[in-house]
């Protein structure tokens, strides 16, 4: 029963990792940009939720209604300006630019909001949980986040496979030049992909703020987990990212159960094992986003 609980908690935290990672996966799969500021973007979303929504007389639980549209727009604009400029130079520049962005964001947040931890206030929902068996507690918040992660991945998958714009995104991801020959404006398509990625990162940031405290520097460690989830699942496969996130979550919970110090170590070991034995990831394919 103890181990079952470990498994359940691993799956729950894995849902969060997947939600966090799918934007990263999308940015890399389509734009071939590794967004090192991904974690910090999530933290910014958390701050926007905490500090903007009270002004709008909206309960913080519903803050995503405001933050997600803002981030969708920010994603498009940032892609069409800064990120596209760096893509036009070379892949290495995108790493430097997003890294720089990450440093700037962290320090701006420290300057404005100090290093104090913040949470997205969801009232007493935070303490409520479902109690199906003796020692198994399923937090409603974590369950909700897992549900949102699955829903987001489902919608993304549906969008990419069924809509014309989604097909263009995959076409650009597969072969940019061939897609351009077919009349696709790849910069605009990149912008759409970036705005999708930013919408998901906004949700992830708010979810993080509901589950635990965040501070200006919380982005880095979450970015690491998101990376691991993407690589374990296989780059370019959205459902792979979910499986990767859950695998990472389970490994961490098992590690933590043996010794709390082993939590992150266990996740990293799983990551290294997958890299060594199956470098394309569990669901990795020859081509991206197929």
């Amino acid at each position: 029963m103890v181990w079952l609980n470990v498994l359940v908690q691993g799956i729950l935290i894995g849902g969060f990792y997947a939600l966090f990672a799918c934007g990263l996966s999308l940015m890399f799969g389509v734009l071939k940009v590794i967004n090192l500021a991904h974690g910090d973007m999530a933290v910014v979303a958390g701050y926007v939720a905490v500090f903007l929504t009270p002004h709008l007389h909206l309960p913080e639980v519903w803050s995503f209604l405001i933050v997600v549209p803002i981030f969708t727009l920010v994603g498009y604009v940032l892609q069409r300006t800064l990120i596209q400029k760096s893509i036009d130079r070379d892949p290495f520049t995108t790493l430097l630019v997003t890294f720089g962005l990450s440093v700037v964001i962290e320090n701006l947040l420290l300057e404005i909001y100090s290093a104090n931890g913040q949470t997205v206030n969801i009232g007493d929902l935070i303490a409520k949980s479902w109690h199906p068996a003796s020692i198994i507690y399923v937090s409603y918040v974590s369950l909700g986040v897992l549900g949102v992660a699955v829903l987001v991945l489902f919608i993304l998958q549906l969008f990419l496979s069924k809509t014309g714009t989604g097909r263009l995104i995959r076409a650009v991801a597969d072969d940019r030049e061939a897609a351009q020959l077919s009349g696709a404006n790849y910069r605009h398509i990149f912008g759409i992909a970036a705005s999708l990625a930013f919408a998901t990162v906004a949700l992830a940031g708010i979810a993080y703020g509901m589950m635990t405290q965040f501070a200006p520097t919380s982005g880095g460690v979450n970015l690491l987990f998101a990376f691991e989830a993407v690589v374990i699942g296989g780059i370019g496969s959205l459902w792979g990212t979910l499986v990767g996130g859950i695998a990472l979550g389970i490994a961490q919970q098992f590690g933590a159960h043996i010794n709390p110090q082993y939590q992150i170590l266990a996740g990293n070991i799983l990551f290294l094992v997958v890299l060594a034995l199956r470098p394309q990831g569990l669901f990795g394919r020859r081509t991206s986003l197929a």
Partner: peptide, 14 residues
């Protein structure tokens, strides 16, 4: 992408 999807991409801005 599938064969049909390739044609659909071509038809998008047709």
């Amino acid at each position: 992408m599938t064969l049909q999807e390739n044609l659909q991409v071509g038809a998008f801005h047709a």
